Simulated assay, not measured.
Amino acid sequence: MSAPRTTAWPLVALFTAGYLAPYLLPTTVGRLDSGLALSATEAGAIGSALLLSSAAAGFLLASRVDRIGPRTLARIGLVLAVVGYGGAVLTHAVPAVVAGTLVGGFGSGTATTVAATGIAAQPDPHRTTTLGLLGVSALAGAVYLAVPHLGAGHGQPLAAIALTALAVWPLTGRLPVRTAVAHSSLGGTPLPRPRSGLVLALVMFCWSLAQNALWGVSGRIGLTQAHLAEATVGAVFAVALGAGLLGVVGAGAVGPRFGRALPIGAGTALISGCIVLSASATDLTTFATGEIAWNVLYPVVLSYVIGLAASLDPRGRWAVLVGSASSLGTAAGPLTGSVLAAQAGFPVMGAVLAVGLLVITVPMTAVALRAGRRPLPLVEIPVQTPARHAYDTTAA
């Protein structure tokens, strides 16, 4: 058991470096909009491209961590993040900024893939995941508070991600050079419960798209519709991310006490209300209430959905596929939100997203009800791992 314990903190740090980019999405998109000659829709498209590049890394590398080696792959990801985001900071040429964010996004996704694979092999993955979420939420909150005081321009959020990747590099020396070779979780026996799994993957794509459509434009809602200062918007996001930690801790504490269907169905319905509230905000109170409540509920529902996916197949293959679908939805969210807001305004955007969430609540809850009453797996995030034992350095 000593190997997993010694690598836990490097995994937490790698998780933080990988997840910082999506956590800083609102300020990144807002700064691209204001700091470069871009429209709001174009800035949102760059944000989506960054996340799509990150998701692509997960698809391509999730089954290759054991072959390449966690230490090597983590270092490759961190180098790409430093070079990509750092390069985007140093130029005002839009094509170069786009290229830099794509390279940096792939680096973030690579780091996240290594971290998620390693966390899945820990004796207590719930605790390690919680520490990772605590770390990235705290760091992102600090960045939101600091960025408004660092001057104008597009580079500050990107520089924060690059510097975090650089700071994490020394810790990769404690990651194993190689892991036990694992069988691919996507081969072998047929997938059980194919109908439930496919439905869950499809609705998870839509669910994540709706969440990140709001998150991607939340900064502009606060600045342009609620008429708040950038420092105030950053403070709201910092508080919201802090409140989200309550959701992380609460989901772990409650566990399977209320089953899966109630947290997923009721939680998604409440999230739809938060989206409407945030998107229609015209003052600080409404904006802060919607954003904070949404950030509390989001990780709670997410933990139960991914736990549900894991319960559909004991080999974890549906967890991989549903997590991948979630990543694609995350990538498509910022552009979707920007297009809807540009065409119809923020309140209509919020209403459309809320209605969509309410519609998919029905099949999500139905899958949860059909899944039975088996123990709820402790899976908090959409980890794209081929198998739990793929990273287990204690394997014979």
Rank of each mutant, 00 (worst) to 15 (best):
P4T: 03
R5Y: 13
A13G: 13
L14H: 08
T16E: 02
A17K: 07
G18H: 02
L20M: 09
T27Y: 12
T27K: 07
T28V: 15
V29C: 04
R31S: 11
L32I: 04
D33P: 00
S54T: 10
S54H: 07
A56P: 03
A56F: 12
A62L: 05
R64T: 06
G69Q: 05
L73T: 12
L73R: 10
A74L: 05
A74Q: 06
R75N: 15
G77K: 08
G87E: 06
T91W: 01
A96C: 00
G104Q: 07
G104L: 07
S108T: 14
A115L: 04
T117P: 00
T117C: 07
Q122D: 12
Q122F: 02
P125T: 00
T129A: 11
L134P: 06
V147C: 10
G153F: 03
P157R: 05
A167T: 05
A167E: 09
V168W: 01
T172E: 06
P176Y: 00
R178A: 11
V181R: 15
S184D: 15
S185R: 14
T189M: 09
T189Y: 02
V199C: 03
F205Q: 00
W207G: 00
N212M: 14
G219Q: 15
L223K: 12
L228T: 13
L228M: 15
A231T: 14
G234S: 04
A235S: 15
L241R: 06
G244V: 04
L246T: 12
V249F: 15
G252L: 04
R257D: 01
A261R: 10
L262I: 11
L262T: 09
G265C: 01
G267C: 03
L270T: 05
G273A: 08
G273H: 07
C274F: 13
I275F: 12
A281E: 10
G290F: 08
I292E: 13
N295E: 10
L297Y: 10
P299D: 09
A309E: 01
A319R: 13
V322F: 05
A325M: 13
A325I: 02
S326C: 09
S326P: 00
S327M: 13
G329A: 05
L340N: 11
A342H: 14
A342I: 06
L353D: 11
L353G: 11
L358I: 04
M364K: 00
V367P: 02
L369E: 03
P386K: 01
P386H: 12
A387L: 07
R388D: 11
H389N: 13
A395W: 06
